[in-house]
Design a protein around this nucleic acid. Structure first.
Lengths: 349, 349
DNA sequence: AGCCAAAACTTAATCGATTAAGCACTGTTT
DNA sequence: AAACAGTGCTTAATCGATTAAGTTTTGGCT
């Protein structure tokens, strides 16, 4: 009859003729009971198939679950295939793991009905690159500790990268080569979906703090300083940071007649830049002689290849680590701005 | 005084002069109370900052958390930077999301002290490519629903890929070109760590069901059929599927004197193959004329580039979807074997 | 022997929900 | 008019732990 019922702390206590408090202490505070008894308890739990205090009950009682939720911009399906997100998450995971916490992945926009649902079991939330008007943001702050990444919510701690400065820096570098026809390929910059050349009727995302807005401003400032009229620089837009979605747009850019085809592509992500590189190579367009390409992010894929991508590296893993440390209270809450680093590759020397 | 205390279902009930059961029903079973009262309750909870039943308490009471844990082979830090894992996870996430579940990431080997810890809050476990002798496996099965991926535990449902058949298939293809000096680059195949040329004293992993063992067997069978003595085919081994770890080994391979340098590299992963491709290009070695390279996995990075990688695609996302469906009980538990697909790229036409 | 602090346990309240069973009312059927 | 079946809501037991406060035991010291 003993091994029939599901093993709980209470049952185990009964079985051994001790109180539940003692069992609990055996698992959580070894100094509160004699080594002999503790040993007996641990052995018995192994024998009877009791694998320690139930996490659900413990989390209710203590109020802490040792789970941190990471809320991602996009569907998980997309996010998990993006190297930048992967790097970020690995940074988060590294710190959480070191402190005995685990990581719960929550999709920003999902198939599912309700947004948070079971997610509010988490002790804290790291919200990554959400659109500033997302409805999740109405629900979360009330709940508990919150750190935002790559965007701001008034008054909440943030970690992000100085996108404006970084894009300014790489554009400055690229413009030293005095391109005749620079073009910019944006990433999810328009309010309405637009996968291709941007037209006057496409309005930009409202919030200037958006990553893409900031990057564009950096590009534009550099162009300004070089006396190039921003109006004359064609803007293209990509809706999703994948090869599949990039390719047709880039093909359209590269297949323009020679006099119109750009000789410099300022891309808002490495993925876009790599797609441009691949399609250029396929067409026999020489990089960097006929076409210079710059990326943004500094993902491994762009560096461990030939030719190496010229880009600006943002420390995504570092962002993740910092965000995790903040949420765990190991680093004081603050508005943190991480530095970037210019990576001089071969695609725009 | 009202808004001072933390809002709970009980407090809300008191506030509104109804029973806790009714509040609970308002959130969970709309048909159990009049629409008017439900409306009043929902409005009040919004006003008083009550964001629905607490997930911790609910999960204790109901016994289900709507959380599925994915246990990964390696540290999360490494796993999340691997495209194959990313694809797998995105498949899992897609299905979980569609059914209102969230995904908890648990490292197989981590910094942390205890292995499962807070993970046992999950309703089910998807264990991905764990070494068959891992100690986690002693703890998990007792707990609850379990699906293994890319390895077996006696009697438990599994989804995996026919690695043997796939590697046989691609080796068969590669050998049609009658290479003079084929070589094999393995991935984590030896019991002792070995990053470089394998020597007689290196013993293979004990379990034949291991992914790497299976892939090697496929290679060997194909070589056999072509009358090539397996003893004569040099084996190299890579300890971690990253560019950083691959590079020195591959450099060593490619920098051998011409008569010894292989003219065919059968690689156990796309990442290895891509590293080989990059290093060959850097050295001016012509691919595929002087050196043929095959990969394994079929990650996007190998296909959206020039030259395209010749490889065999395993449907990682599909594996993830299937595993998730099984764990949610949407697909009958079983031993599932997924098909692979030969991708004829340019590196071994 | 007697006293007392420290060590080793126990008691019992509590965390915040869910849900079967029960009760009171309303309206319909015979 | 009595019986009956729904509605709409409440009562109260329960999920499996944690932990402050209290009680008994032990052993060291005078």
């Amino acid at each position: 009859m003993t091994d029939q019922r599901r093993m709980t702390l209470k049952n185990l206590a009964q079985e051994l003729g001790v109180s539940t408090a003692t069992i609990s202490n055996a698992f959580n505070r070894p100094d509160q009971l004699s080594p002999a008894l503790r040993d007996r308890i641990l052995k018995a739990s192994k024998r009877l198939g009791y694998s320690g205090p139930d996490a659900k009950a413990r989390s209710l009682r203590t109020g802490r679950s040792r789970i941190i939720a990471v809320v991602l911009t996009e569907s998980l399906t997309y996010s998990l295939n993006d190297a930048v997100v992967g790097e970020f998450l690995s940074g988060v995971a590294e710190v959480l793991d070191a402190h005995g916490h685990t990581l719960l992945l929550v999709p920003g926009r999902g198939h599912a009905s309700q947004p948070p649902g079971s997610a509010n079991i988490a002790d804290g939330f790291i919200v990554y690159g959400l659109m500033p008007n997302h409805k999740l943001l109405d629900e979360l702050p009330a709940q508990r500790t919150l750190v935002t990444v790559d965007f701001d919510i008034e008054g909440y701690p943030t970690v992000h990268v100085d996108n404006r400065a970084a894009s300014y820096q790489i554009a400055k570098h690229a413009l030293r080569t005095l391109p005749k026809r620079p073009a910019i390929i944006n990433l999810r910059l328009t309010k309405q979906a637009c996968n291709g050349r941007m037209k006057p009727e496409h309005t930009l995302l409202p919030d200037t703090s958006t990553v893409s807005r900031a990057r564009l401003e950096g590009f534009h400032r550099a162009l300004d300083e070089h006396g190039i009229d921003n109006e004359q620089v064609p803007l293209w837009n990509i809706e999703e940071n994948t090869f599949e979605v990039c390719s047709p747009v880039i093909a359209e850019i590269l297949d323009q007649p020679l006099g119109q085809r750009p000789d410099l592509l300022l891309c808002m992500s490495d993925r876009i830049a790599l797609a441009a590189l691949t399609l250029a190579e396929e067409r026999g367009i020489k990089v960097p002689e006929e076409l210079r390409i710059t990326g943004f992010d500094g993902i491994a894929e762009g560096q461990y290849r030939a030719p190496r991508l010229t880009t600006v590296r943002q420390d995504s893993a570092g962002k993740g680590r910092l965000a995790a440390q903040m949420i765990l209270g190991r680093t004081p809450f603050a508005q943190q701005l991480l530095k970037t680093e210019l990576l001089l590759g071969d695609t725009c020397p």
